[in-house]
Simulated scan of single mutants.
Amino acid sequence: MPLVLRSRRTLTAALVPALALGLAACSSDGGEEPGSSSSSAAAADCTPEGLQTLTDGTLTVGASEPFEPWYVGEPTSGEGFESALVYAVADELGFAKDDVVWESVTFEQIISPAIKPFDVAAYQTTITEERKGAVDFSSPYLTSRQGVIVADSGEFSAAASLADLEGAKVGVTASQTSLDVTEAAWGDKVEVVPFSAVADGMTALSSGTVDAMVMDVDQGVAATTVYFPDTHVVGTLPSVGEPEQLGLVLDKDSALTACVSAAVDTLAEDGTLDELKTTWLKSDDVPELS
């Protein structure tokens, strides 16, 4: 994975808009398959000529600020889990790489019921029943977990269990999955400190204002190795309810949903998704705290 070396200050500044938007994508648990079935995809013409895209022969993809491990460099690079995923889905649908164009959007645009300026969006968006009322989701492409990050030199640097973190000030992103999972894990045995953006929480962790930060574990691994190298992931929190799954987002009742879901299903069945996880996500060995 090519990396451009930058100063800590530059990395932190670069992370602020990325994490502020990106980690907001994961909210409450979801994970049910979208309503479109494989049979409806089989009945559809899942080719560039048959798909009703915004621009004939072109697949327009929505994304926001690029950040690792989802995007390495610009989305057009094909590097990073979601960038590579988009091009793999496009290939399944018959689009050449040059036929994929990227549209910069906000997370609010992605999940709102308004008509979208894209055919499909790839931005770590958790599948929830509430969101299904406003948008369509593809089949899930990733099951996520919430990781716990601590400072290398902090009081809780050697934490290896939930009990080891009792009494800590734990940062979360307000109104997101991390809040629910943190409260379920510890109850009132930790002091929960909400932040409007994950980058704010990570900055607070580095400065010692909080003792730990809870966030998506895959983003957490990237945050600790690329953006905040004075921190590390100690483990993940036990899941709450149904597994938290991410899906590609489309307009509500989009004619593309069945075909996009079928493409994701094929990538899951032929091992491509596992290959992308191995290449770009480094969280498989992170243990669950108990």
Score class of each variant (00 low, 15 high):
residue 82 E to L: 15
residue 83 S to D: 15
residue 83 S to G: 15
residue 84 A to T: 02
residue 84 A to S: 06
residue 85 L to H: 00
residue 86 V to C: 04
residue 86 V to H: 03
residue 86 V to R: 05
residue 87 Y to A: 03
residue 87 Y to M: 06
residue 88 A to D: 13
residue 89 V to M: 00
residue 91 D to C: 08
residue 93 L to V: 03
residue 93 L to S: 04
residue 94 G to D: 10
residue 96 A to H: 12
residue 96 A to P: 01
residue 97 K to Q: 05
residue 98 D to T: 13
residue 101 V to K: 08
residue 101 V to S: 12
residue 101 V to L: 08
residue 103 E to Q: 05
residue 103 E to C: 02
residue 104 S to G: 12
residue 106 T to W: 09
residue 106 T to I: 08
residue 107 F to Q: 11
residue 107 F to E: 06
residue 108 E to P: 08
residue 109 Q to F: 03
residue 110 I to Q: 07
residue 111 I to R: 12
residue 113 P to E: 09
residue 114 A to W: 08
residue 115 I to E: 07
residue 116 K to Q: 07
residue 117 P to S: 10
residue 117 P to I: 12
residue 118 F to C: 07
residue 118 F to P: 04
residue 119 D to Q: 08
residue 121 A to T: 01
residue 121 A to L: 05
residue 122 A to W: 04
residue 122 A to K: 09
residue 122 A to I: 15
residue 123 Y to S: 10
residue 124 Q to W: 01
residue 125 T to K: 10
residue 125 T to D: 05
residue 126 T to R: 07
residue 127 I to T: 03
residue 127 I to G: 01
residue 129 E to G: 09
residue 129 E to S: 13
residue 131 R to M: 14
residue 131 R to G: 06
residue 132 K to D: 04
residue 132 K to A: 07
residue 132 K to V: 00
residue 132 K to F: 00
residue 133 G to E: 14
residue 133 G to S: 13
residue 133 G to K: 13
residue 133 G to C: 06
residue 133 G to Y: 02
residue 136 D to L: 00
residue 138 S to N: 01
residue 140 P to F: 13
residue 141 Y to A: 01
residue 142 L to K: 13
residue 142 L to S: 12
residue 143 T to G: 11
residue 143 T to C: 07
residue 143 T to Q: 11
residue 144 S to D: 12
residue 144 S to P: 05
residue 145 R to S: 11
residue 145 R to A: 10
residue 145 R to V: 09
residue 145 R to E: 14
residue 146 Q to S: 10
residue 148 V to G: 14
residue 149 I to Y: 11
residue 149 I to S: 14
residue 149 I to K: 09
residue 149 I to E: 15
residue 150 V to Y: 11
residue 151 A to N: 14
residue 152 D to T: 07
residue 156 F to A: 04
residue 156 F to P: 03
residue 156 F to Y: 15
residue 156 F to E: 09
residue 158 A to H: 09
residue 159 A to W: 08
residue 159 A to I: 10
residue 160 A to I: 02
residue 163 A to F: 03
residue 163 A to K: 15
residue 164 D to N: 10
residue 165 L to G: 03
residue 166 E to S: 10
residue 167 G to W: 05
residue 167 G to I: 11
residue 170 V to L: 06
residue 170 V to T: 06
residue 172 V to S: 04
residue 173 T to E: 15
residue 173 T to K: 09
residue 173 T to R: 11
